[in-house]
Simulated scan of single mutants.
Amino acid sequence: MSYAIIGFGKIGHALAKAFARSGIEVSVATTRDPESFASDAVAIGPKVTATTLAAAVKADVIFLAVHFESHPDVAKALPSWHGKTIIDVTNAYGVPPEDLGGLPSSAFIAKAFSGAKLVKGFNHLLAATLDQDPAVHGGKRAVFLASHDKEAAEEIGQLTERLGFAPINLGGLSDGGLLVQARGNSWGRLIFKDLVKFD
């Protein structure tokens, strides 16, 4: 299984650090030349590799960590996303609900990535929190996941555990997903909730 993070801002950096802590290889990409951020990637860890957008979209699992408005540009990178799993880390705060056709923001994004399995996740934590070691006071920091695809949610739940977090499955995008989305001038009820799960 191969992994990529598209978007290398604060959230992208935090996700890359999670992979580095767990010793899992991941590529990072933006729309810029990878040489412009290669030193930042190397500084995070030896298993983090800067690459082009065209190379990153070849990964099996892709974290979409760009600004919400930039997702159509990423979606154009492939004619079909069949066989890919996209983890939507975006937040559509400030985007009017009518611009989303009344859909949850992740369901709207799913339309752009035709054929992909889409899971909403890792978006509810501030970058500074996501950047920290998820092992907290003997427990694990919770990451909320939502998807219409049960198999994809389970797959990403397993990856979430490998990254050291505690996955909490909220169900589909149209119900649980609403708890972790932002759109218009509102935030879902679980946005910014930094919770820890204890066994």
Rank of each mutant, 00 (worst) to 15 (best):
S2M: 10
S2E: 14
Y3N: 12
Y3S: 08
G9P: 10
G9V: 05
K10S: 12
K10W: 01
L15W: 08
G23R: 00
G23S: 03
S27H: 00
V28C: 02
T31E: 00
A38G: 01
D40T: 02
D40R: 13
A43C: 01
A43M: 01
P46I: 01
V48Q: 07
T49Y: 06
L53V: 04
A59P: 08
D60C: 02
A65K: 07
H67P: 13
E69W: 04
S70C: 04
A75H: 06
A75L: 10
K76V: 03
A77C: 06
P79F: 04
P79L: 12
W81F: 10
K84W: 07
I86H: 13
I87T: 08
D88H: 14
A92P: 08
Y93M: 03
G94A: 14
E98R: 13
G102Y: 06
L103H: 11
S106Y: 10
A112M: 07
G115N: 07
A116T: 09
L118E: 00
L118G: 00
V119H: 10
F122C: 01
Q132I: 03
P134L: 08
P134S: 06
P134E: 02
H137I: 00
R141C: 06
A142Q: 12
A142R: 13
F144M: 12
K150V: 12
A153K: 09
G164W: 11
P167F: 11
P167C: 10
I168N: 06
L170D: 05
L173S: 09
S174Y: 10
L178D: 03
L178I: 06
V180Y: 07
V180F: 09
A182C: 15
R183T: 13
N185Q: 15
N185Y: 10
L190S: 11
L190G: 09
F192M: 14
D194W: 04
F198Q: 05
F198Y: 15
D199N: 11
